[in-house]
């Protein structure tokens, strides 16, 4: 029994997976974090000026969390005040340069580690003044997980340089590695846990009254008035009965997200519901969880293997059949 359980766990985490899938996720995650979310107004990394503003005007409120203390430890910042503007600028520069290198896979391992550390430092610094947000948390975990995995074994400048230096030709199927699956699986489960946390909180804090329609009216009105979101305000004024179904759908989606992992065939519908959920929340309440949407790419294998018919290209004469990668177990 124990042996079978261990074997199942081993298959779940370490069955050979595609290094290309992992590399694709590296490119999307580091690429979007560096080239989009670093600049995108709701990307939440905020420009250097915003960090410096907090570190000066809000210095009194500075209460660094453990992650920031640890990152500042090498520069003697464990018990000190806010990081200096120079240090914040350097972290921003490091996040940019290392993020680009990690995306293209040049000096990939150190680049990914530096990018993960610099991004976490900036995010943790922004959250060190008595308020923290959730939008970037998953992305920060993903950066570290990818940095510790063979994420640049293929589709990277490093891999191209290795080939050019005369490394032996890769055998057929060298795209696969038993170490290519766990990073993606891990992020799938972390995402599922965060959604589960949101669902459980609604039951624990709000109880069954969370589903009464008034709750959604309240949160829509609150977010709408705070953020100047006219659509949220308009929807808040609708009869609460109209919010019953959206409330139930939001809860069920959060509580049952893990189904996309244990039943990969359902990954497409679950992730499409997730995308619709986050986009409609942004359209109404202006609450942006775009980084989470990018992280849906960790389901790349299930999305590739169980593509719905309407997304499949008709097989042309020059097209080779796809490799038979069916069957990587989920459970």
């Amino acid at each position: 029994m124990v042996t079978r359980l261990l074997a199942a766990l081993d298959r779940h985490w370490f069955a050979p997976g595609s290094l290309r899938d992992l590399a694709l996720v590296r490119i999307l995650v580091f690429g979007s974090q560096t080239l989009v979310f670093l600049f995108f107004p709701v990307g939440r990394l905020r420009p250097p000026g915003a960090h410096v503003h907090l570190a000066t005007v809000g210095a009194e409120l500075y209460q660094p969390m453990l992650a920031l203390r640890l990152l500042l430890l090498p520069v003697g910042g464990w018990d000190g005040g806010p990081p200096s503007p120079a240090m914040l600028g350097a972290a921003y520069g490091a996040a940019l340069v290392a993020g680009v290198l990690a995306t293209i896979g040049l000096l990939a391992r150190p680049a990914m580690l530096v990018a993960a550390a610099a991004n976490l430092l900036l995010v943790a610094h922004y959250h060190a003044y008595g308020e923290y947000h959730h939008h970037e948390a998953l992305m920060m975990i993903a950066l570290w997980v990818l940095a510790l995995a063979p994420s640049a074994a293929v589709w990277s400048v490093d891999a191209a340089r290795r080939r050019r230096r005369g490394a032996p030709a890769a055998p057929a199927g060298a795209d696969a590695s038993p170490l290519a699956r766990w990073p993606l699986r891990l992020m799938q489960w972390v995402i599922a846990l965060t959604y589960l946390s949101a669902a459980l909180s609604k039951l624990q804090v709000g109880g069954l009254a969370w589903f009464n329609g008034y709750t959604m009216s309240y949160h829509l009105a609150h977010a709408g008035l705070r953020r100047g979101a006219e659509l949220a305000v308009a929807v808040a004024a609708l009869p609460p009965g109209l919010h019953l179904v959206p409330s139930a759908v939001a809860f069920l989606f959060e509580a049952l997200f893990f189904v996309a992992i244990v039943r990969p065939r359902l990954a497409w519908p679950v992730l499409l519901v997730g995308a619709a959920f986050h986009l409609s929340v942004y359209a109404t309440m202006r609450i942006a969880f775009f980084q989470t949407l990018v992280l849906y790419c960790v389901f790349v294998e299930a999305l590739r293997l169980h593509r719905p018919a309407w997304l499949r290209l008709p097989p042309g004469p020059a097209r080779r059949p796809p490799p038979a990668m069916e069957g990587a177990p989920a459970g």
Partner: peptide, 16 residues
């Protein structure tokens, strides 16, 4: 946020 980036997600959980 003690263990950030490991956090729980209680946003919008209160009922009205």
């Amino acid at each position: 946020a003690r263990w950030y980036p490991f956090v729980d997600y209680p946003m919008y959980a209160r009922s009205a």
